[in-house]
Design a protein around this nucleic acid. Structure first.
Lengths: 187, 187
DNA sequence: ACCTGAACACCGTTCAAGT
DNA sequence: ACCTGAACACCGTTCAAGT
């Protein structure tokens, strides 16, 4: 006799994302997720292989959302500003996705690739197609590193963090485009 | 009647650092550490407040070591190369220190400050003192982000990661120094 | 077909009891 | 003064039993 489903994978992932942000990764337990979706912990294993896979699904859902936000960006400066804004809104999810600690499950590569579309587009326009990938990686690494460090207090005390962000954004965007400009001048 | 000490804080931290690298952060358990130093888990609480503090001590010891390595650097390119080399040698410790995941204990600020000495020195020489801090943060953010992403597979598949590193290092060092150069030309 | 209680192995942590 | 076994609360996970 079939039993009606009392929850869903979507509800489980949503509860996990909530818990991650409110309680941190250690608070994202199977029991807490189960309670939120109105079920006992063992029932989660009908929809999810285990906690590690659930964390991975949270990371992937986060990447999809990041990709959506970046799609709307108009240029590279706007893109990194949106990227940073997401980090401030959802610090735990941002860290999970961009800089998972040692031993933390990560998203499958396809999901990382989804976010690189808009970055590659803007980076290519600026640096030229041959250097698009390297330019995109330079910008991404800087932005991810910067936001991750400010979220974990890596910048220590003192100084104007917003000013350092603008400084970095302007200089890096200029630097990444400098090769193409040089070549244009010569050709 | 006093009992002879059967272990020490140094031995505990050393065992924890070993475990972090060989087993990952989840494998860094109080029981595993206790076994390595030849003691039962409860005895660890004579020297350490708890697992979180032990992880913090590991992070701080790692930062001291990173600072030592960076001290030897001759210029900014050399410095970031040493920084990256450390990440490749000790990936888990590197991630713990530079990009701890959400909920992972972090080092006290003094220890982060220790590593910024050599960075500030080289960045100041390049960008000028007024912009030294912003230049240092730009370089640090890029390097930390880059190495963290390559360690966690964040760059997806394909492409020449070493080439992207050299591209970024050269462009960023140039970009960070561009303001001072410009001012020199005008003055 | 889905959900549950019970159980297992394994955590971190506390504490009274040993020496 | 340090170490230990026992105990507790809490994990993730498995599985036989319920409906």
């Amino acid at each position: 006799m079939p039993t009606p489903e009392r929850t869903s994978l979507e509800a489980i992932v949503a509860a996990a994302r909530d818990l991650l942000e409110t309680e941190g990764l250690p608070g994202l337990t199977m029991q807490a997720v189960a309670e939120r979706v109105g079920v006992r912990a063992p029932s989660l294993y009908k929809r999810v292989q285990g906690r590690d896979q659930l964390v991975q699904l949270v990371a992937e859902a986060t990447l999809v959302e990041v990709a959506e936000r970046l799609e709307a960006s108009t240029d590279l400066i706007d893109l990194v500003d949106r990227f940073r804004a997401f980090g401030h809104e959802r610090p735990s999810a941002f860290q999970l996705v961009m800089t998972p600690g040692p031993g933390v499950p990560t998203a499958r590569p396809e999901f990382g690739a989804a976010t690189s579309g808009p970055i590659l587009r803007h980076a290519g326009a600026l640096a030229g197609e041959p250097e698009a990938l390297e330019a995109a990686r330079t910008v991404t690494a800087w932005a991810a590193g910067f936001v991750s460090m400010e979220l974990t207090g890596g910048f220590g005390l003192g100084g104007d963090v917003d000013a350092a962000w603008r400084f970095g954004a302007e200089r890096i965007v200029a630097a990444v485009g400098s090769g193409a400009q040089g070549r244009d001048l010569v050709s």
